[in-house]
Amino acid sequence: MRTDYDNWEPLTVSNVVNLFTDLPITWCLAGGWALDLHLGKQSRQHSDIDVIILRDEQESSYDFLSREWKLYKAQDGVFLPWVQGEFLTDTTDVWVSKNHNSPWAFQVMLVDTFENNWIYRREKSIKKPLNEIIAKTNEGIPYLRPEIQLLYKGGSSKVREKDFMDLQTMLPILSTQEKEWLTLSLHKQFHEGHPWIALM
Rank of each mutant, 00 (worst) to 15 (best):
K98I: 04
S125M: 10
P10H: 15
P172L: 11
G40Q: 07
K179T: 08
T91S: 02
S157R: 07
P172M: 10
W82H: 01
S102Q: 15
E192S: 14
W104P: 00
Q45V: 04
V51K: 14
H46I: 10
T176H: 15
I134T: 14
S61N: 07
E139H: 11
L71M: 11
I52M: 13
R55A: 04
E59K: 13
T183K: 15
S175C: 09
L29N: 01
S102V: 08
D6A: 04
E161M: 06
L182T: 07
S125R: 14
T12F: 02
W8F: 07
I173T: 14
Y62H: 12
D93F: 07
P24S: 06
W33L: 04
R160G: 00
E123F: 04
F79H: 04
T89Y: 12
T12I: 02
T3Q: 13
V94L: 03
D22L: 00
M200T: 08
M109Q: 08
A34Y: 05
H191R: 12
I53A: 09
K127N: 13
Y5C: 01
S14Q: 15
W196Y: 13
T26E: 06
E68V: 01
N131A: 01
K153P: 00
S97I: 02
T26Q: 08
G40S: 10
G31L: 01
N117W: 04
W118L: 04
H38R: 11
I52P: 00
F114N: 10
A105Q: 12
V13R: 05
E68M: 05
Q149N: 03
N101R: 11
T91I: 02
L11M: 15
L11S: 11
E132F: 06
E123K: 14
I173C: 09
M165K: 08
P142T: 06
H38M: 04
S14C: 05
V51Y: 13
P142S: 07
P24H: 08
G193T: 07
W82C: 00
G154I: 02
V78L: 11
Q45E: 13
L171T: 12
W82R: 00
D90C: 02
C28L: 02
Q58T: 05
M109L: 14
E147C: 08
A105C: 08
G31M: 04
S14G: 09
T183S: 14
K179S: 07
T89A: 12
Q42L: 12
Q189V: 09
S66A: 15
